[in-house]
């Protein structure tokens, strides 16, 4: 009989454990610090500019003292429109891929296409949008050209997120549903989608944030001008957004207060994104409590 093996705790493994924990902790802390400095700097520069007038005035083209009222509206309007187009398509495609397509070559090809589309640089989409919607379809620089091209940016991400979230639904839950006599559609609607909701929601926020910050696509499709009426819901007018405005005033250089306008615009964008993420976090917690 072999001698009994004695299992002694190894000093080294405990040390590595501690070192690893410290290192990860340090990394997280460093990351938070960088983020804080970054956001702080933007807010600090923008703070003096931020006042009710800045938020509620029309922009100026040559003189100092312009506001960003229509840009705020255009940003939100374009994000909402593009999501209204891409959400049904992305959800539908994601549901199809997760629940109906089965396995096999066609699905793998489809997935490759979507992943490629998701990784396409936005400047490529921008030029595509300009050629197809602005020029060929004759929509010129307008809200609709912008919204549709922006939707092309969103669709692959929403599709993929939906698919992954649905594939993460435990098989036992689906079996329970089928076992009670549910059809496939009933199972998707009543069991799979509610379970996947928080994942899809997170993806949606990332998408909305990306669309909100997108500039290249909108420069080439929604233009750098804005309607003189407010609020202008027409789809055919050009619609400069916050990020486009930010880019335009700093690169154009005709405004005497371009620096201040840019700083204020950046601060507004950061605040909007913070509010967006925070409210979704709350919503997510609410949904999670009821569906998990």
């Amino acid at each position: 009989m072999p001698a009994a093996i004695s299992y002694r705790p190894r000093r080294l493994s405990r040390v590595t454990d501690r070192v690893m924990r410290l290192a990860l902790w340090g990394l997280a802390l460093a990351f938070i610090a960088v983020l804080a400095v970054f956001v702080g700097a933007i807010l600090k520069q923008g703070w003096p500019v931020l006042n009710l007038g800045f938020l509620t005035r029309m922009p100026e083209t040559l003189d100092a003292g312009g506001g960003i009222k229509p840009e705020i509206f255009n940003s939100l309007y374009l994000v909402a429109l593009s999501l209204a187009i891409s959400l049904p398509i992305g959800l539908g495609a994601g549901i199809y891929m997760a629940e109906y397509a089965g396995q096999g070559r066609i699905l793998r090809f489809l997935r490759l296409c979507i992943e490629t589309l998701a990784a396409t640089p936005s400047i490529v989409l921008a030029l595509f949008g300009m050629i197809v919607f602005v020029q060929m379809m004759g929509w010129s620089f307008s809200i609709r050209s912008g919204a549709v091209t922006l939707a092309l940016l969103n669709i692959p991400v929403i599709t993929r997120v939906t698919e992954v979230s649905l594939l993460g639904v435990p098989r036992e839950l689906k079996e329970a549903s089928y076992g009670l006599g549910a059809t496939r559609l009933q199972t998707i609607l009543k069991v799979a989608l509610p379970y996947a909701a928080t994942g899809i929601l997170t993806g949606l926020v990332l998408t909305a944030g990306r669309a909100f910050g997108e500039s290249a696509i909108l420069v080439f499709t929604a233009g750098t001008n804005t309607s003189q009426t407010f609020p202008d819901f027409r789809l055919t007018v050009p619609g400069e957004t916050l990020s486009v405005h930010l880019w335009y005033v700093t690169s154009d250089g005709t405004l005497p207060d371009a620096r201040e306008i840019a700083a204020g615009t950046a601060a507004v964008m950061i605040v909007v994104l913070l509010v967006l993420n925070l409210s979704v976090r709350l919503l997510d917690r609410f949904i999670r409590r009821r569906t998990r």
């Binding site: 079996e175 549903s177 076992g179 069991v191």
Partner: peptide, 20 residues
């Protein structure tokens, strides 16, 4: 088969209540 599953119920090895 949907009607069949209504008539022939099933209880699984691991309890699998819906998160409702």
């Amino acid at each position: 088969e949907v009607d069949l599953r209504r008539r022939v119920g099933m209880v699984f090895q691991k309890p699998n209540p819906f998160p409702k």
